[in-house]
């Protein structure tokens, strides 16, 4: 079962930018692309835990602000030459509202 939560309006997230969502236990980064797709990743770089939400978004990639690792927003995979992966959460945008699921994986959305 997917527990979708309405978390924000699309315009709360800047284009090519991000917003953080904090829960009691973790911080999630929401990213918005130029073409208004939204992705969610755990806000912690697989390298040394850098806050991905603070990085620069381009295409469907975010560059970590600490040491420039590049992470694919859709899959959470680190792009070569580095290696690693960060958890990606399910997101859907309906009627201008961003829904987040803490259980659905991105690909399931």
């Amino acid at each position: 079962m997917n527990d979708w939560i309405v978390i924000a309006r699309l315009e709360d997230i800047p284009r090519l930018g991000s917003r953080t969502v904090v829960t009691d236990t973790l911080t999630i980064a929401l990213f918005r692309t130029r073409d208004d797709r939204v992705f969610a990743l755990r806000d912690s770089c697989p390298h040394r835990g850098g806050p991905l939400s603070q990085g620069i978004v381009h295409g469907t990639t975010v560059t970590c602000p600490l040491h420039n690792w590049q992470i694919d927003l859709a899959s959470g995979q680190v792009l070569g030459p580095d290696e690693g992966c960060v958890h990606a959460y399910g997101v859907k945008v309906e009627e201008g509202l961003v829904h987040l699921s803490l259980t659905a994986h991105q690909s399931a959305a």
Partner: peptide, 11 residues
């Protein structure tokens, strides 16, 4: 302001 204010979920 959005830059500095996170969204919150209670869970």
């Amino acid at each position: 302001a959005g830059e500095f204010t996170p969204l919150r979920i209670a869970n």
